[in-house]
C-alpha cells in the first residue's frame, strides 16, 4: 500500500512544485514590501516625533501581540465590512505586510537607537540635513546591527506564509492539505511539504548564522 501511495505522490509532484512556486512568490513579494515599510516605520519609531512614534507603537503592538491567523482573518473577513474587499492572494500579501513590517520596524528602530548620539550631533554640525544624516551616517552604521536579525526575521516570515493557506491561497501547505485528503499518508505528504520548505528556508538560516558570526564584533 505504501509503495502505491508513494507512486501516486510522485505522480502529483508537479502540483507540489506549483505550491512551492506560490510560496516563493508570496514570500518574495511580501519580504520586499515588509522591508520597505518596515524601514520607514523604524525610522519614525526611532525619531523624536512623539505622536508619530505613538501611532507606530500602537500598530507594532497590535501586529506583534496578536497571532498571525487572527490578523489574516481580520484582513479577509473584517476588512470587507469596512469596504476593503480583497481576493485571497492580495489579502495574504496585505496581512503579511502588516505583520512583517512591524517586526522589521522593531529591528530597524533597535539598530538606529544603537548608534551613539554623538554621531547625530557630529553629522548635524557638519551641516547635513536630517535626511542626509540618516542616509549617509546613521543607517550605514546601523546596518551592521540590523542585517543579522533581519535575515533571521526573513526565515520566520517565509515560514509564516504557510498560515495564508487558511484563506485558500494554494501554496505549499494548502497543497499538502489537499493532497492528504486523496492520499491518506499524512506522514509522507507532510514530510514532503516539510522538505520543500526546508529547501528554501535552510539556506537563509545558514546565511543568517554566517552573518551573525561575521558581523558581531
Amino acid at each position: 500500500m505504501m509503495a502505491f501511495y508513494l507512486s501516486r505522490l510522485v505522480e502529483i509532484f508537479p502540483f507540489f512544485l506549483k505550491g512551492l512556486w506560490m510560496t516563493t512568490k508570496i514570500a518574495f513579494i511580501s519580504l520586499i514590501i515588509c522591508t520597505l515599510i518596515g524601514f520607514v516605520l523604524g525610522v519614525i519609531r526611532a525619531s523624536n516625533n512623539v505622536w508619530l512614534k505613538r501611532i507606530v507603537g500602537v500598530y507594532v503592538a497590535f501586529a506583534r501581540g496578536t497571532p498571525f491567523v487572527v490578523q489574516i482573518f481580520i484582513v479577509f473577513f473584517v476588512f470587507p465590512e469596512w469596504g476593503i474587499q480583497l481576493e485571497a492572494f492580495p489579502a495574504a500579501l496585505l496581512a503579511m505586510a502588516i505583520m512583517g513590517s512591524a517586526f522589521v520596524c522593531e529591528i530597524v528602530a533597535g539598530g538606529i537607537n544603537s548608534i551613539p548620539k554623538g554621531q547625530w550631533e557630529a553629522s548635524a554640525s557638519s551641516g547635513l540635513t536630517k535626511i542626509q544624516q540618516l542616509r549617509l551616517v546613521i543607517i550605514p552604521q546601523s546596518m551592521k546591527v540590523i542585517i543579522p536579525p533581519l535575515v533571521g526575521q526573513y526565515v520566520l516570515l517565509i515560514k509564516d506564509t504557510s498560515v495564508v493557506s487558511v484563506i485558500g491561497v494554494t501554496e505549499l501547505t494548502r497543497v499538502g492539505w489537499i493532497t492528504v485528503v486523496r492520499i491518506p499518508e499524512g506522514l509522507m505528504v507532510f514530510a514532503l511539504v516539510g522538505v520543500l520548505y526546508f529547501s528554501i528556508s535552510y539556506p537563509l538560516i545558514l546565511l543568517s548564522n554566517y552573518l551573525e558570526r561575521r558581523m558581531t564584533v
Binding site: K159, D160, V163, G186, L187, A191, V193, G194, F198
Partner: peptide, 19 residues
C-alpha cells in the same frame, strides 16, 4: 527551525492516525 509550525501540526494531525 526550517519548517513552519503549521506543517508540523498537520504532520502530527494527519500522520499519527496512519501510524
Amino acid at each position: 527551525r526550517s519548517t513552519p509550525l503549521l506543517v508540523q501540526i498537520y504532520f502530527f494531525y494527519f500522520g499519527l492516525p496512519t501510524l
